[in-house]
């Protein structure tokens, strides 16, 4: 399976990825490295659609990558609207593609 991680770089050298951990994306097991942001861990494996808009159900993904545009929000551990481009993965984390405004726990 493809992996878009850049392991060797002419300027930045060899990449030092963190410990391999497992998170859950829409219920499925998913491998990521400690220190990575959720959005980029997903992107590395070709998952670019992170949510669907509420009115027209249009797909959205990473746009600014620095936590400003909120286009990449997903439901993380039950909490909607988490900016995945600046939220690091954690072992056992449950990440869900967000539909519209998401669902808040009762």
């Amino acid at each position: 399976m493809k992996d878009l991680r850049i392991k060797k770089h002419p300027i930045l050298g060899e990449a030092k990825f963190g410990k391999k951990i497992t998170i859950f994306v829409d219920g499925k097991k998913f491998s990521a490295y400690e220190g990575e942001m959720i959005a980029s861990a997903l992107y590395a494996k070709g998952i670019r659609k992170l949510r669907a808009t509420s009115k027209f159900k249009e797909p959205r993904g990473i746009f600014c990558a620095i936590g400003r545009c909120t286009d990449c929000v997903m439901t993380v551990n039950g909490v909607p609207n988490i900016r995945t481009c600046i939220t690091p993965v954690q072992s056992g984390m449950r990440v869900k593609t967000q539909k519209g405004l998401g669902k808040w726990k009762k």
């Binding site: 959205r60 990473i62 746009f63 600014c64 620095i66």
Partner: peptide
């Protein structure tokens, strides 16, 4: 998805 800022 697949359109992003250059800085991004």
């Amino acid at each position: 998805p697949g359109v992003m800022g250059a800085g991004a």
